[in-house]
């Protein structure tokens, strides 16, 4: 077995949130609460001292119950949240397949949104020009591509989002239960696309409540509970512990 390179390194990542007892989000409330000395914050550690490494081509499933910190961990890795402590070292491009199409502008047409969303994901204009036809074809939108997004069905939006996000060949792919995009036909196609990325040796982080899916797609797993890793190893070992906890 040849030694593989590390694609992602998460080092002692902790994430602290301030939960105010009551939400203060305007100046008036803030001043009143401040004068009455009612500004209290509760600290809450969503992640505590998380460390792990992923080698290139590894597919890691993240398991855990609601509120265990799975989504927070993904956001930290994607660079959306900055950890309170620790750091994430990544190599290559990351593509997050999280809530596809969240960056769309509803007044813009599909074609314009391809450029806008592509720009949000950090692609260059030349790259989108080159891949434009491929995106349109994969999304199966046909003539609808010149219609404003606000007239799209949610399935059409998700299809377009998926097509734009997967047109690159990322080094690291973050998947948060999105394999249920569109109708049965498109779902098959998108699963096939993701599988083909797997075959090219992309590193995958996968979050799902479905143990079945995780077992099918991943080779390694970690189990989170209350922001800490309580088990890690091969997917069989970890899912056995997870099933134990379910009982």
């Amino acid at each position: 077995m040849g030694k593989k390179k590390v694609a992602l390194k998460v080092e002692n990542v902790s994430m602290k949130f301030n939960l105010s007892a009551e939400k203060v989000n305007d100046l008036k409330d803030y001043i009143i609460k401040f004068l009455k000395r009612q500004l209290r914050y509760q600290e809450f550690w969503a992640l505590q001292d998380i460390s792990f490494e992923m080698e290139e081509g590894e597919r890691l499933g993240i398991l855990g119950f609601n509120g265990a910190g799975k989504s927070t961990l993904l956001k930290v890795i994607a660079g959306v949240l900055k950890p309170t402590k620790g750091q994430v070292v990544k190599k290559g491009t990351i593509v997050p397949l999280l809530e596809l199409g969240a960056g769309f502008d509803s007044q813009y047409t599909g074609a314009e949104n391809i450029y806008l969303y592509g720009a949000v994901l950090g692609y260059s204009k030349e790259f989108i020009d080159e891949k434009y036809d491929e995106i349109v074809k994969f999304s199966e939108l046909g003539d609808f591509i010149n219609v404003p997004i606000k007239n799209y069905s949610s399935g059409m939006k998700a299809r377009l989002g998926f097509s734009i996000a997967t047109v690159v060949e990322p080094d690291i792919l973050i998947v948060d239960e999105v394999l249920s995009v569109g109708d049965a036909k498109f779902r098959k196609k998108s699963e096939k696309k993701i599988k083909s990325m797997f075959d090219k040796g992309v590193t995958v982080l996968f979050v799902s409540h479905s143990l079945e899916q995780v077992k099918r797609l991943c080779n390694k797993a970690i189990l989170l509970e209350k922001g800490q890793i309580i088990a890690s190893g091969t997917v069989e070992e970890v899912s056995a512990i997870y099933e134990e906890k379910l009982k």
Binding site: Y108, E112, Y115, L116, Y123, K125
Partner: peptide, 20 residues
């Protein structure tokens, strides 16, 4: 520089939508 294109797209979007 990497996000220059996004800046351009956002400016274009603002102007386009304002008058569309």
């Amino acid at each position: 520089m990497r996000y220059r294109f996004l800046l351009k797209e956002l400016v274009k979007k603002d102007i386009k939508l304002k008058y569309r």
